[in-house]
Amino acid sequence: MTSTQIAPLAGFTIGVTAARRADELGALMERRGACVLYGAAIRIIPLADDSELLAATTSLLKGGPVDVAIATTGIGFRGWIEAAEGWGLGPQLVEVLKSADVLARGPKAKGAVRAAGLVETWSPESEASPELLDYLLRDGVAGKRIAVQLHGEPLREFVNALRDSGAEVIEIPVYRWTGPADPAPLERLIDALLAGQVDAVTFTSAPAAASVLETADRLGRLDALVEILRGRVLVVAVGSITAGPLKRLGVPVVCPDRARIGALVRELADALPARATRVKVGDRDLELRGQAVVVDGELRPIPPAPMALLRALAISPGRVLSRPALAAVLRKHSGRESGVDEHAVETAVGRLRAALGESGLVQTVVKRGYRLAVAAA
C-alpha cells in the first residue's frame, strides 16, 4: 500500500464548533478519514421569535424609502423575508426593497434575493465585504438610507465606514446567537485541545469563534488555549470575518479561497498532512500524524502517551533521550507533576514498539536511554 492510498485526514482528530450544518461538516471530514469531536459553541435563536429582528424590520419600514439594501448571506436574507411574512410584513418589506439597489455579497445571497422576487444591482466577484464597501463608497453614500443584513457578528468597521461617510444605516440582525444550551460538549472540546488530543479546529461563524474564547476565559484557561491555537493546532475558518476574533488575539488562521464548507474541508485535507513529521527510520518511512503513524504507507494508530514519546524522539532523529528526559515528556503530556517514573517510560516504549509493529524502530541504548534507529550519516 502506498501513502497516496491513505485517506488524507486519517489519523487526525478535528474539532467542530459549528451549530448549523455541523453533521454535514463532520461527515465530509470523516469520509476523508478524520476522527471528529463536536463542541457546538453557539445556538441559534429562531428568526420568527427574535424581537430584535422584528424591531429592526419595523423601524426600516416606518422610516421611509430605502436607497440600498445589502444581502450578506443567503440563509440570513431568506430567513428575514420568511420571518417578515410570519409577522404579516412580508409584502410590505418586498415592496420597499424593490425600490432599493440590492447588493448581494455572494452567489447564495444572490439566490435568496432572486427567490424573494427581487433583482440584485451588483455583486462583488470576491464575495468579500471590503469590495462591497469600496463599491458603495466610490459612488458616495451621503444622505442615503442603507439596510445592512448582518450575519452573526456586528459588521462594525463596515457600518461605521458608511455612517462616517454620511449614510443612515439600519442594521438587520437576522442571525442572533447565544451560548450553547449545554456547554459540556464545548468544554470537553477545549479540554481535548489543551490535552494535545486535537490536531485542528474549525470555525464557520465569528460568534462561534468568540464563544470558544469566552468559554475558555470563563474556565480560566484562555491564555493556555490561545497558546495551543498559536502552536501545534491548525485553526481553519470558513472566511476572514469568521477568523476575526481569533486573529485579534494573534492566532494564525487558514481560510479557503471560497467561503464554503466543502472548500474548508479541502483546505484541511491539504494542510494537515503537510504538517506531518516525516522521518526515515532504518529502511522504513514514518509519517507522524495526530494519533497515528503511517509506516511505509500503512496507518498505525498510536496511543497518546507512546505518541508523545515518539514525537520527542523524532525532533532529532537518532539522538538518544534519557529515561528521565522521556519521563518529563510523559509528565508534561499527562499534566501530572509526579507518579511518572522510568518504569512508566519503559511501559510506554513497549506500547510504542507494539503499535509500530516493529520493535527495532525504537532502539534501547544501554545505560543511556532510547533513540530512533536512524542510520548514521
Rank of each mutant, 00 (worst) to 15 (best):
F12H: 04
P65I: 14
V281N: 00
A312V: 09
R188G: 05
R336L: 10
R323G: 05
P306D: 07
A308Q: 08
V96T: 14
W80C: 06
R21I: 09
V365M: 13
P207L: 10
W122V: 12
G239N: 00
V119L: 15
A142H: 12
L268W: 03
V201D: 03
Q291S: 14
T242E: 07
D199N: 04
L9A: 01
R188S: 08
P317R: 00
L93T: 07
L213H: 02
A84N: 02
A55Y: 12
V102Y: 09
G33Y: 06
A271F: 03
P46A: 11
G88P: 13
E95I: 11
D191N: 13
A18Y: 06
E24L: 13
S322I: 11
S211N: 08
L118W: 09
Q149Y: 00
D285V: 15
V253S: 04
A312I: 13
L155N: 06
T73C: 04
L53T: 02
G152Q: 05
K98V: 12
T202V: 11
E358S: 10
L54A: 14
G15W: 10
E95L: 12
S129P: 03
A161S: 01
I75R: 07
A69S: 05
A19P: 01
L136G: 00
S129I: 15
G86Y: 07
A271M: 12
G231S: 09
V198M: 00
G86D: 11
A192Q: 02
E267H: 14
I70E: 06
V265T: 11
L103I: 15
A209T: 09
V320C: 07
A216R: 05
G220N: 11
T215L: 04
R353Y: 09
T4D: 13
A167M: 12
A40F: 12
S359G: 11
P306L: 02
L361G: 06
F203L: 04
A10V: 08
L264G: 02
A116M: 08
A314D: 09
K247T: 15
L213Y: 04
R323D: 13
T13V: 10
S129T: 14
V226P: 03
H343K: 15
I14H: 07
P65N: 13
L155C: 01
V236T: 08
A200Q: 01
V36K: 10
V119E: 15
R218K: 13
S334G: 02
D217M: 14
R284H: 15
D223Y: 01
G152N: 02
G152I: 08
L9M: 09
R138H: 15
V238R: 01
D341R: 08
A314K: 07
L150E: 09
D101N: 10
G64C: 11
L162W: 00
A18S: 09
T73I: 11
G86L: 11
P256H: 09
L54W: 15
G318Y: 05
V238P: 05
L155W: 00
I315D: 11
L193Q: 02
I75D: 07
